[in-house]
Amino acid sequence: MLVQLDPGVIIWTTLTFGLLLVVLRATAWKPILKALDTREDSIRESMEKAEEAKRESERLLEENRKNFASAEEKAQELIKEARELAEKLRGESVAKASAEANKLLDKAREEIERDKQQAIAQLHGLVAELAVKAAEKILSETMDEARQKKLVENYLNSLQNN
């Protein structure tokens, strides 16, 4: 008989299955399922961590880029400022130098003028003296007796005529 009710086999099967369920649950399914869960969790966790690390690194990169850009900008600004300052300083020094030069020139001119006046004054005195001396000499050479007589006579004549 193929299909024959046998309650004994049903009972044995139920007992066997129940026992297997209890034993397997404790010794096999729990550790296996727990290991699978742990592994899945760890995979999920590490993936999340990797994602977070990626985001963090991207953020850092962006920040770096921003920092770099701002540093570059700042450097450019500094260079510009320095250049302006240098320009200003140069302009200032040129002006100062030319002013100095002008001052020196003026001073020199003044000195020259003073020297000239002095020289002119000295020359005046010298010329007068030389003229007197020359006149004296000419006079002494030309005033002989006859001339003196004539001169005196001329004078006396003028007096008589009055």
């Binding site: 309650p7 004994g8 010794t27």
Partner: peptide, 28 residues
């Protein structure tokens, strides 16, 4: 009255069960 004899199929059942236990223990 229930005949609780250990028949051929009950033995086979137990052997399959023991095999299963051993296999799962190795895996675990």
């Amino acid at each position: 009255p229930v005949d609780l004899s250990i028949t051929k199929h009950v033995v086979m059942l137990w052997m399959a069960g023991i095999l299963l236990l051993i296999a799962m223990r190795i895996a675990a």
